[in-house]
Nucleic acid binder design. Sequence first.
DNA 1: ATACTTAAAGTAAAAAATACAATAAGTATT
DNA 2: AATACTTATTGTATTTTTTACTTTAAGTAT
Lengths: 251, 251
Amino acid sequence: MLKNLALICRMEIPSKYYISDYKIPIDEYFVFGLSVDCVIFGYHEGEIKVLLVQRDAEPFKGHWALIGDLVEPNQNLRDAANNVLEKLTGLKNIYMKQFFTFGSVDRHPIGRVVTVGYFSLVNSMDYNPIASSWAKSAQWFSISDLPELAFDHHNILQKGIETLKNEVRHKPTGFELLPSKFTLLELQLLYEALLGYKFDKSNFRKKILEMKILKPLNEVKENVSHRPAKLYSFDEKSYRALEKEGFSFQL
Amino acid sequence: MLKNLALICRMEIPSKYYISDYKIPIDEYFVFGLSVDCVIFGYHEGEIKVLLVQRDAEPFKGHWALIGDLVEPNQNLRDAANNVLEKLTGLKNIYMKQFFTFGSVDRHPIGRVVTVGYFSLVNSMDYNPIASSWAKSAQWFSISDLPELAFDHHNILQKGIETLKNEVRHKPTGFELLPSKFTLLELQLLYEALLGYKFDKSNFRKKILEMKILKPLNEVKENVSHRPAKLYSFDEKSYRALEKEGFSFQL
DNA sequence: ATACTTAAAGTAAAAAATACAATAAGTATT
DNA sequence: AATACTTATTGTATTTTTTACTTTAAGTAT
């Protein structure tokens, strides 16, 4: 039995909906597949990582790839992206952002599949691929040492990295990569990894504290063999309030 | 005769391409329509404008809308967006940027149509709707005084405006809205309109000239009833060179 | 008690941003 | 031709921010 919506359209949609003079019947425009691909960033030991899976089916069997999936006919894009992330990591409520849509005619061997790229920032402590059901095939890779990727995933990943680096300097999103309680030095090292250059410790501290977007906690870092640093958490409420007054994060 | 690619897929694509366990046959995922919608920005008399057309067909007949069109099965997204712009304005080689993809399940009454938003910056001197073949229906609107829009075009437009305002402050794209030769005051007024606040004339001039991205011309503004200002043009080569050295535009 | 490590605070110099002021170079008017 | 008028362009003093270090504090390890 035939359920293709394009055909249903041809039968049911009144001609008043034909919004232009198309060269071919309008149902023949409904031939696109739609997918989402997720660039999942993590941070570990001073390096920005990205989560990849090894494909166990053709095409590109054995190649590493971004995780992604076809979007269901009745599924919103954001839901599709969240599902993909949750299926792999079990994580919900993760920072996620659409960054670009890739639609080259020949990007997918199965047909015309347009894919929407999302990136998400995961505190790498929250997810260990070894413990996941995809264990055998999922792995964190440093973005400076990537394997060859399936499809046009190299393009997608590069665009994702570019967008992240750009966003991170103007919005306080980098925090998502850290545990909820962190020291100022940990934050500094994260930003050094993200932006690719060093900060002066004293000046970094001054600058970030002056912004008033960190909440100082009455706790210190444990299990260090030297003076423990005070822990802070990102103060989202305070940031939102400042943003309304015209403040804009800048590093 | 039936030409739907989804069906062709079902017949011809070997099972090794079935990349996951899908709940429904894979051809039933190929039911999406794809379109592009363009937010065309112009600048005139100190105001940021956007070009809208009045729909002459259902749905939303009579409503103003962004210009856009369905993407052909063998057409790349960028080409589709350029075509739409050229069909309306006759302009080629216009700055154009993809900014977001809108895919809510019920955003289009004809079926599942996902639309990719592009914005373009047009020097409004280059296009006058009166002279165009769409004359009767195309019109510039100030972004502070917009009519009600068809579909979810209000969302798309707002997201486009947000993206423009964001981009303009970190990349020298605002220049695209001016004629190729402009005075420093004209540039300042443009940025004041884009960013929503005033600059000190002397300081703005100092800052922008220090960037070394403007080429001073041996020409002055004509037809003004006071001392004419020197004309400048944006020096793209110089900007690209500086960018490689790590310079980043900031206003 | 001492050495060692990192946290946290301070400080002086340099650079950049800001707010004006002064001068220059045109056009329009008398 | 002299004068008023308008905007362009240059200059300058003050304030603020950034930068590069220095000093002191507070913990752990020996």
